[in-house]
Design a protein around this nucleic acid. Sequence first.
RNA 1: GCCCGGGUGGCGGAACGGUAGACGCGACGGACUCAAAAUCCGUUGUCCUUCGGGACGUGUGGGUUCGAUUCCCACCCCGGGUACCA
Length: 826
Amino acid sequence: MTDLRYDPSEIEPRWQRVWADERTWEVANPDPAQAAAADEPPKSYVLEMLPYPSGEPHIGHLKVYSVGDAVAHFHRRTGRRVLHPMGYDAFGLPAENHAIKTGQHPRESTNAAIAEFQRQFREWGISIDWSREFATCDPEYYRWTQWIFLELFKHGLAYRKDAIVKWCPNDQTVLANEQVIDGHCERCGFEVEAKQLNQWFFRITDYADRLLDDLATIEWPEHVKTMQRNWIGRSHGAEVTFRCEELAIDYPVFTTRPDTLFGATFFVLAPEHPDIERLIAGTGQEQAVREYVNHALTESNELRGAADKEKSGVFLGRHVVNPVNGEAIPVYVADYVLMEYGTGAIMAVPGHDARDHDFATKFDLPIRRVVEGENPDGDADGLPYSGDGPLVNSAPEFDGLPNREALEAIVGWLDRDGKGHASTNYRLRDWLISRQRYWGCPIPVLHCERCGIVPVPEDQLPVVLPDVEDYAPRGKSPLAAATDWVTTACPQCGGSAERETDTMDTFVDSSWYFLRYCDASNDGAAWDPAILRSWMPVDQYIGGVEHAILHLMYARFFCKALSDLGHLDAQEPFAKLFTQGMITKDGAKMSKSKGNVVSPSALVASHGADTARAYILFIGPPEHDADWSDEGVEGVHRFLSRLWRLSAEIAARGPEDPPAAPDGADLTLVRKANWAIDKVTGDMSSGRFAFNTAIAAVMELTNEISRLRDEAGTGAMRLALQSANSLLFSFAPHAAADGYHLLTGERVWEQPWPQADPVFLASDTYELVCQVNGKLRDRVEVPADADRDSLQALALAAPNVRTHVDGHDVVKVVVVPGKLVNVVVR
RNA sequence: GCCCGGGUGGCGGAACGGUAGACGCGACGGACUCAAAAUCCGUUGUCCUUCGGGACGUGUGGGUUCGAUUCCCACCCCGGGUACCA
């Protein structure tokens, strides 16, 4: 048998050629004119997040596509029509930064990276429908990104406004709130600055409630849903108006605790509040306030935002009136109040809010209790207390009421008097989508001197990204330098107009790519809604948890907005989401600078794609982070070699049917095979991703085959090996397809998923566990159909049970048929 | 601070409330070989043992149960998310 050597470098390309030549993984769209046939198999849209092509794929790509491919194969072989496409998120900063450094056009480096990704995806044997492939930087694709932009624009969901926005001084572009992590640019890590600019936004805040409420309709990991809920940050409360009588100006504030209104003893504005100058005029506080505000505005976000920072602020020299009791309370400016949330002003209730309490203590302001209850970590009076309790020190009609009831009553009263109303606030801001960068999708509008903002007519799409000489950002888009391109005629009045030079955030490109896959070659529309109806939503989406907020919320927003505009039915793009964990090496994230990078192409060259894929799935539960081990790779390689060699060896013995009534070693083997089928099926069914235990089960089966190779008959061996290869195909497709083909002459992917025969799942006898006082004392082989009484008798007769029972009183015997007997003695 | 995860052999990890440690790695011993590689076989939680077995073991302390890695309470540690959001 020495000449039977497992050689993935021969096996893998051979099967890849078959799949490529026969276009095995392509799936046709249903004919929209034709009603779906009744016997048509159910569809399954399996999708992994599309890669950003840069350099070459890393081990994280290998993991996400190995996971997705296992799901896709399982769905195919369990009777579903599977859509499993691939594309590239090809616009973006890394290619542009590379262009700035080298002068190479981003398109060239991107295309080179795409070619390398394509090569490796094929080399990994991922079962992709290549007929639907595209890159988001293809004009045939971004034409429709522009079309979507215009649809949103026409319906008021895309708009331009002046706003204080987050600016990355390094990348020289604005960023969406979601792209600012701890005050730093998500891409390059530079601290962001605030800038007042005129920018394009998508009105995602219109969808805040639906984005929040519809989370209940999708099967996503709970922590991802929680992150989205927190990001949207819906709070219920009231808007209450405090009036500055001296200047006759009303100041609304948002509060979640209108029940504590009677405890408001001061009022605070954010340093950015536009009315500050007006308020301080003539108070004598001008100097002090200006100094404070200037300091607050120049302080970094990070310093200012530190939660444990000591409270600071300055009295404005003005008062506002608390609408519930007519009390005039002093107005302060303080940096703990944020302009971007609520109204930029707050009523301060130091008795029941920790921050207000800190401030009041520092500035010696009155602290009033209005809710009964003790804070054990609070001051001498047990304040600040933020829990529930009956109201006190408020108004006679509210005192004594539980605060939650009082809250409703007070809001009702304010509403009747026109001093306030129930209100809901969100943390979510509109999505800032314009970028002052080159390598992105041009925003398809013109600025006309006479007509203002004019959308590019649909028949002029795409607005093709022009070539430029200099990619370096200079505070405005490099496109502004392409003057021939910028200068154009207004389609409305014919007068001179200029093109918008900002490009779109690349997250716009990736917010609808999963729709385009469904109808990727449609050149008359972004998609045919009927075709979308047949594929959407994505049944199983797979990707990294780092997109929990950004991509996954934007894509949800797009689906809701586009379905409101009548372009699709799906309210939610991704019915199920699986987030895979990261692979580390020596406990650290892989990086070139640390020199701990495992290269997929090197791995495939040395051990083959099957080993790489199966190892990644075997290393642990795919949702967990896992540390790479070169020795572990060897182990999986040994296993694949062994299974393949056994398959080849038994195949060479010639055909033989499995025994009709197996016994002895044959029976053991047949039972093990059926056990493995049952185990792997369970590990992969109903959304379980237990690939590690599934592979372990095939290893067990292989070990049994190897152990019994000299005792079992060829028929039983063939059956067991066939099952092992069939089960392994989802994880190591080439080796399994080859082994299966050697044994049967058949193509494993054309075979249905194997079914366990219940006859061989059961056994005539089993090992009964015998416990005394819950401790294992003996095991006895018992008939499978033994009744409770005989089980009890058999257990009590077991020698080592007797030694522990003798001399004691048997208090009780617990019999669990099929499992164990526990004798309780005293 | 708050919200999620998670603490099991030397390591990665298995265990519908029912034999803790499947499977793999590593280690040790053996077969084959002139030798090595490859391959195959065996042992491998800790301690004790008269070799029958016994005691202890899933972060810590309690509880529920005939029986707890699993359920409940309190706490410790690690990872992630988030944070003056009123």
